[in-house]
Design a protein around this nucleic acid. Structure first.
Length: 773
DNA sequence: GAGTTTGAAACT
DNA sequence: CAGTTTCAAACTC
């Protein structure tokens, strides 16, 4: 393609493959045992995938797209002849110089390759032994490496790497190196607040990616890639970028990025000189590739992404979208086609809408009977997108940026969004931030989500895994089992709140068993109108039913516990016979304790009685081990909470064996958990407290929307909130023990929470663990 | 899978 | 706002 021409020309000149082969690094790689190679590949995959995904999500800048593009591009390149593995192999080696390998090298991967399973290694090992997935992984590896090395934001990338890679790395110097580097980067990241968030995203992406990779099949990827080519302009751009990137690198002759330098050191390759000026090298490496992002590097990732996006025409945004789609394609395979088609067809949709759609695709890529599960227009992912819809395109773009990559997050409920959407830049930023952190994945769809697995489900969906098989695999990979199920409406046409899909701001999708469903893109107008009507009656109708009171994030970015108790049901339940011990009870279902708002009778909510919630809040804040889930993306949350229980604060007690949610919540909340001196923390950062940890358990409501961030909580609610700090009678039955407060928590806290949200957003927390390690 | 129970949502 | 009806999920068998 035209894409190749420019770059290729330059590439050979700058980075002749022969040179690379001659290099000690290359020799070293060749010497590696096949087994090691394979391992390296895995690492690379894990590494790559995560890093790859995360950066994308984080920056949403051209880089990401380019990277993703590069990835797909590489794949295509190698897979051009899938039927002929051998040829492939040879081709890989030969063409590699022209194709992925070169690209990787150009980007500065060369050094990295030697370190962490260089492309050459991967390619060799993979190709030789693993024609199928391996190849893909190998291919991706270079990309990931590239990403890793090239991107100025190495830190972010590094985080995921470290976390994932380290375990496997043991014993391999190269890998160690990578990990080591990653650690450095992590430290850096720790310093940077927002970057941390991104890192968190990376984690999520990583996990998801890894899972995807595991399940992926080359053929699929290839197919998806082709589609991408057709559909995705971004791919082209990517290619061009790749080509350019190599140029830059070659020109610089200083391929080394951090990783590269480290690798060099380790390898001791004389030819390559460690990069003296990291920035410059980075800049040099990536400039052409990521022109936009680099400059903004210093700025918070989010902000940078925003800037970039804004600066770029819609096209850029579309690229991102495409990028996202691509990922979906990669993972989803066939299903994506449908989605893509749908998207393309819905050109009329606003970006926000598109975003929502894409997000949903990620969230629930499945297309079914013509129904594409996508966020309702205007509402995007769940209710949250509503705001987006209303918001200017620019905002939408921002959101998208945030959402891009793995982070497809549902935006905060409309109320908050609207509020933030105001002209106030600060508020906007908040909104954006909120979106990132607070967004809850739409797990709703799958009941599998019941537990932590819900999150997993979300992830799966997010990545557009349409194939049930793949989903299952992914879930299994994540350790979750689930049955995909959605609404089963018979008479409501899925246009009433009875319908979980509708209530969640989502279109019904294939898994739904609804009859006469009108909750689909085909009836968009009807859906919107209905929603409008419902909202007119009850502005909070689409708001998350569960509101998190406290924020787990500590000022230091420590993660907080995500306790169910910390959350409350928006309206409270009205249970009469279930004792709030069954899912009939929305509080119970939501994994939260009943509150003073509840009118339940004989409440035995295991999550905590009305009082319990408040108490829990207090306890909660104290420990803050976790930084802030809220800060993290949905994905992050998922990863930490569900995918990586390890990362999550150890559950002290899981009260309710019944629900996974509960279990999860139990972990977080666990009354037992609260060791920490609470008051101090509360005082310290009340806001953070509220900031929220909404995500952890995903109640049924939350399946789609999950918990609503405080921000999302309508002002009214906030105002109503009573201060939780006060000790409240815990008696379960006495709902009114504490003076009935309309709000869920102290209004102040909520407000604070908003403010804090920005602060708490510091992503470092999530990253911290790895750094600490 | 069918039927029952339950409580939210919707309606009056 | 209260009472009733409708609805669909949750639950049971």
């Amino acid at each position: 393609m035209e894409l190749n021409t420019p770059n290729k020309n330059q590439i050979p000149a700058t980075n002749p493959l022969s040179q690379f082969e001659d290099s000690p690094v290359f020799n070293y790689i060749n010497n590696l045992s096949p087994i090691e190679l394979v391992k390296s590949m895995h690492n690379g995959q894990a590494f790559n995938l995560p890093s790859f995904a995360s950066p994308l999500s984080v920056f949403a800048s051209p880089q990401l797209s380019s990277q993703s593009d590069a990835r797909s591009f590489i794949r295509r390149y190698q897979f051009s002849e899938p039927s002929k593995p051998e040829l492939f192999q040879s081709k890989d080696e030969n063409d590699t110089s022209k194709g992925a390998l070169e690209a990787a090298q150009l980007t500065g991967l060369i050094v990295e390759q030697s370190e962490c399973s260089t492309p050459a290694n991967s390619s060799n090992g993979v190709i030789t032994k693993l024609p199928g997935e391996r190849m893909e992984s190998a291919i991706e590896e270079p990309i990931a490496l590239k990403y890793y090395c090239a991107s100025p934001d190495d830190n972010i990338i590094m985080v995921p790497l470290k976390a994932i890679i380290e375990p496997e790395v043991v014993g391999e110097p190269n890998k160690r190196y990578c990990s080591h580097e990653s650690e450095k980067d992590l430290r850096k990241i720790c310093r940077t607040g927002q970057n941390e968030d991104e890192a968190g995203c990376d984690w999520v992406a990583l996990i998801s990616d890894v899972a995807d990779i595991l399940t992926l099949e080359p053929s699929v990827d290839e197919e998806s890639d082709e589609k991408q080519k057709l559909v995705d302009p971004g791919t082209i751009s990517f290619i061009s970028n790749v080509l350019q990137a190599p140029q830059d690198n070659s020109d610089d002759s200083e391929t080394p990025s951090y990783a590269g330098s480290s690798q060099q050191r380790e390898i001791g390759e004389p030819g390559i000189k460690p990069v003296e000026s990291g920035e410059q090298n980075q800049a040099d490496q990536t400039p052409s590739v990521f022109p936009g992002t680099l400059p903004d590097k210093a700025v918070v990732n989010v902000a940078a992404a925003k800037v970039d996006i804004r600066g770029k025409s819609y096209q850029s945004s579309s690229k991102q979208q495409n990028k996202i789609r691509r990922r979906c394609l990669v993972f989803e395979m066939g299903a994506h086609k449908k989605k893509l088609t749908f998207e393309s067809s819905s050109s009329t949709l606003s970006q926000s809408d598109r975003m929502g759609a894409s997000i949903e695709k990620h969230a629930a890529p499945r297309t079914d009977k013509g129904k594409t599960l996508s966020a309702l227009p205007g509402r995007g992912i769940g209710l949250h997108l509503n705001a987006l819809t209303a918001t200017s395109s620019g905002k939408a773009v921002k959101i998208e940026t945030l959402a891009s990559g793995n982070q497809e997050i549902s935006q905060p409920s409309s109320p908050a969004a609207h509020m933030t959407s105001g002209s106030d830049p600060v508020s906007q930023s908040l909104a954006l931030t909120t979106v990132e952190t607070d967004f809850v994945p739409f797990d709703n769809k799958d009941k599998a989500m019941e537990n932590a697995p819900k999150t997993l489900m979300v992830v799966t969906e997010d990545f557009g895994i349409s194939s049930p098989k793949m989903k299952r695999q992914k879930l299994e990979f994540l350790g979750a089992s689930s049955s995909c199920k959605r609404c089963n409406c018979k008479r409501s046409k899925c246009l009433k709140l009875y319908c979980e899909c509708f209530a969640a701001g989502l279109y019904c999708i294939e898994p739904c068993s609804c009859l006469e469903c009108s909750n689909n893109p085909a009836h968009e107008d009807t859906v919107l109108e209905t929603r409008r009507q419902i909202e007119s009656r009850n502005p909070l109708a689409f708001a998350p039913k569960v509101i998190r009171n406290s924020d787990s994030v500590s000022e230091f970015g420590e993660e907080t516990n995500k306790t169910p108790a910390s959350a409350r049901h928006k309206r409270g339940c009205n249970c009469k016979k279930s004792s709030c011990l069954k899912k009939y009870c929305e509080c119970f279902q939501g994994g939260v304790g009943c509150s003073s708002y509840c009118r339940c009778e004989g409440c035995k909510n295991t999550f905590g009685c009305k009082n319990g919630v408040e108490e829990n809040d207090i306890k909660w804040e104290e420990p803050k081990t976790h930084e802030n889930t809220s800060n993290l993306n949905l994905l992050d949350i998922i990863e930490k909470g569900e995918d990586h229980p390890d990362l999550i604060a150890p559950s002290k007690d899981s009260r309710s064996p019944v629900h996974p949610q509960i279990l999860f919540s139990g972990q977080l909340s666990g009354s037992s958990l609260c060791d920490v001196g609470p008051s101090t923390q509360i005082m310290r950062c009340p806001i953070q407290r509220f900031r929220t940890n909404f995500f952890y358990h995903q109640p049924k409501y939350e399946k789609h929307l999950q918990v609503i961030p405080e921000d999302e909580t309508p002002e009214i609610l906030n105002s109503n909130c009573l201060p939780t700090s006060g000790v409240k009678s815990v008696s379960p039955n006495s709902k009114r023990v504490s003076p009935p407060h309309h709000g869920f928590g102290p209004s102040t806290t909520w407000r604070r929470g908003r403010k804090l949200i920005l602060r708490s957003v510091s992503p470092s927390t999530s990253l911290n663990p790895p750094c600490e390690q």
